[in-house]
């Protein structure tokens, strides 16, 4: 194993092109566990913490680009207003120490179905920015996840950023764990209202081999809100709509029994989370109050 420090993105991409099996490392919060426990031995480590192109976030035309090296702690403290769903999700990541190091880029690189950022990214229709010496491309996050801990990133590519539209409506994120802090999700759910385009976004975590949307639930709720004229004239959400939304979210899940929970619990809990979070977002939408992480 060797250790290479990339000083620039070009430098990092050149290395990754030459040595596609090298393990990129930023916060190290996934990779170092695997190394410490002797679960993997990569041929080398490529340190990205000194790459300036990954280190910051910026906004342009209502779209926020978060460099892959921005730690969760900064998303919570700096982006809570612009990206409330992702900021809430970030707050549930592990511990403060981990949030000081861990990054959304790393979460995507691991591509675990339980990654905390993923449901919020899905609900916001985020795009993943991938770069290689061949060029840069952007991929809708829903197309990024291809299997359990597998993604559409090519071996020579690095995840360089995510792009999300600044929130135009309320967003929520909720995660179930068997402990009140510092826990990997048993299941997680995020919902975002996009009144600018009369759409609803969702994201489910630990609910299937990959993080996924509940497309039917999104379309159902957006349709109800539109047909009832509630985007412009918000009234209390009918109980039947909330219930149906919860059912559709639960139906979108294809969970498994594992050490953290049963499939049956996950399906049930996702329904509960969906009903509650949609209630909270609608409450915010109709009252104009915003929740921050």
């Amino acid at each position: 194993m060797d250790f290479l420090r990339a000083a620039s993105l070009d430098d990092a991409l050149a290395t990754k092109a030459q040595r596609p099996d090298i393990a990129p490392i930023a916060g190290g919060t996934d990779l170092m566990v695997a190394i410490n426990f002797d679960h993997i031995r990569p041929s080398g480590l490529l340190d990205l913490t000194s790459v300036p192109e990954l280190a910051d976030w910026s906004e342009s035309g209502g779209v926020i680009r978060i460099g892959a090296g921005v730690p969760y702690a900064r998303i919570i403290s700096e982006l809570g207003e612009h990206l409330p769903g992702l900021a809430m999700a970030s707050r549930t990541v592990a511990s403060p120490q981990i949030r000081n190091r861990g990054t959304v880029g790393g979460n995507l690189a691991t591509a675990s179905p339980s990654g905390d950022a993923h449901p919020a990214l899905l609900a916001c229709a985020a795009e993943v920015e991938l770069a290689s010496v061949r060029g840069t491309r952007r991929l809708p996050v829903a197309e990024f996840f291809t299997g359990v801990k597998r993604s559409a990133a090519e071996p020579d590519e690095l995840i360089t950023a995510v792009h999300l539209a600044r929130a135009t409506g309320p967003q929520q994120f909720a995660k179930v764990g068997t402990r009140n802090a510092m826990v990997i999700s048993v299941c997680a759910f995020s919902v975002a209202l996009h009144p600018d385009r009369a759409e609803v976004g969702t994201g489910l975590g630990s609910a299937a081999p990959t993080p996924r949307r509940a497309v039917e639930a999104e379309e159902f709720l957006a349709g109800e809100l539109t047909s009832r004229g509630m985007w412009t004239d918000p009234r209390p959400l009918p109980e039947t709509v909330v219930t149906r939304f919860g059912e559709l979210v639960a139906a979108a899940a294809a969970p498994i029994d594992d050490v953290r929970g049963t499939a049956s619990y996950r399906r049930h809990a996702l329904g509960v989370l969906a009903r509650r979070t949609v209630g909270w977002t609608w409450d915010e939408y109709s009252t104009g109050r915003q929740t921050c992480a």
Partner: peptide
């Protein structure tokens, strides 16, 4: 939310 079941993971606001 830190005082409620689920803590900062935001699973209930009292429901």
């Amino acid at each position: 939310i830190r005082d409620l079941p689920g803590g900062a993971a935001n699973t209930t606001h009292g429901e």
